[in-house]
Structures are given as C-alpha cells and as structure tokens.
Design a protein around this nucleic acid. Structure first.
Lengths: 109, 109
DNA sequence: GCATACTGGTTTGCAATACAAACTTGTATG
DNA sequence: CATACAAGTTTGTATTGCAAACCAGTATGC
C-alpha cells in the first residue's frame, strides 16, 4: 500500500499538532503559555518530569521553534530560562482550538 | 533520579488515557463509539489508515480490552467485525471527560 | 485447470519516540 | 581537598507508529 485513501478525517483528529499533543509537552506548553517565562527548575517541579525527560522535551520544542531556551547565570548558578516563541504561542492556540473542535464533534452519550 | 517529584499535575494532563489519546486510535474509537459496530474495510475507508497500521492499532485496543474483534465470513469473504466493549465505551467516556476538563483549564488568551 | 489478479488482513522492518539512569560541569561545604 | 549538591545533558533501552512486504483464500482470464 503506497498512498493511503483520500483520508476523509471528518473530525480533524489526524491533523492535531503531535508535538503539543504529547501529554508531557502539553503540560510544558500550557504552563509556559500561562506564565510567559519560567526556568528549568520551576518546570521540573511543576511538571513532575525527570530532568532528562524535561530536557529532551524542551530541546524538541526548541527545534520546532516553539520555545526559546536562554541559558544565563543568576549570580553563580546557571539558570535556563524558557519561554514560548510567537510561533509557539500560535501553535498552542491552534492546538487548543483544534482540540475544542474535536471534542465538540465527539458523539454524545 | 529514581522517583520523580510528587507530581502535582494540576491540569490532570498526565493522566490521560494514552491508548485513546493517540490520534489514529482516537479516530477509531470515536467511530466505533458512534456506530456501535463496524467492519475492517469500513474503518479502513473511514480512517484513511493503511491496513497494517489499522490492524496494529486494533490489536492494541483489543489487548487493552477496549474492542472486540470478531472474525467471521460473509458468504465466502472474511469479515472482521469490530465493536467497543463496555470497558472501551467507559474508557472513551472517561477520556472525553478528561479532555474537556483539560481544555477548560487551558489559559485563555 | 492453472496462472494472474484481487480482497482482507497480518507480520516484518525500521525510524522515531519517551523515559530514566548515568554522566558532566561547576559551586558550596566539612 | 574530598565530598556533596545543583543544574542540566547524554546515553541506553524499550515501546511506539508507520508502511512495505507478505499470506490465505476467492474470483477471473485463457
């Protein structure tokens, strides 16, 4: 099977942004959308992810251009500051809207 | 890092049912929830998935006890009939509700 | 009646993931 | 100066999602 069917997808489900759809990243993005800027340690506490996991997800979001990673020092301690890029904010809004549509299309009862 | 933090997850995001959360399966389950019973070919057309992919997702849903796979013959052609189990229906309802909560907790604007 | 094509699937191979453990770099402390 | 700690990153691994390749059985051409 080379090319699948015309793919109706009447619910729009298959067009969700999988980068944000992943629960861990949904959490991260939701937080960043709300607070505008947060550091690594804050996200660590807030998400409950392990450091490695959080780091990986942030890198992936950065690659996609969704978050900006800003490494600096606060005194002598390194601090990694994260914030959503305009692209990231737009993507979150689009995702949120898409999800809303999908939910509304769900069969009731 | 052995055990992560107490994990607040105030949004409930990390407790979504990942089996249903996967878009392809969300599509399948949504359809099955609505139509009560469908055969493989119908799902194939309706989802736009490839056969292998659809087969794999259905097997996974079966393992989880979410769908019932009933292989029979309609005349001489094999027919695989799929339907949600009570468990599957309950899981979909729970997922739908969870998603609704999450969406409502999303920061507006 | 045998090859060829089609239908309805399953199995296989593979690239990409998600995750936590182990490592790294640098600071503070006994 | 060794030992612990803090802030991350890299590495290893098991699981996934996907489509191509395969398989069994039926219908069709010749």
């Amino acid at each position: 099977m080379t090319a699948p069917n015309p793919a109706p997808d009447r619910h729009g489900i298959s067009s969700v942004d999988r980068l944000i759809h992943e629960p861990a990243r949904m959490l991260i993005v939701t937080i960043l959308y709300a607070v505008e800027s947060a550091d690594f340690v804050y996200l660590l506490r807030e998400t409950g992810l392990t450091k490695g996991n959080l780091s990986a997800h942030l890198s992936k979001l950065e690659e996609a251009g969704y978050v900006d990673i800003d490494k600096s020092f606060r005194g002598k301690v390194p601090q990694t500051l994260l914030r959503l890029t305009p692209q990231g904010r737009a993507a979150f809004q689009a995702y949120r809207e898409k999800l809303r549509q999908i939910i509304q299309s769900f069969p009731k009862e």
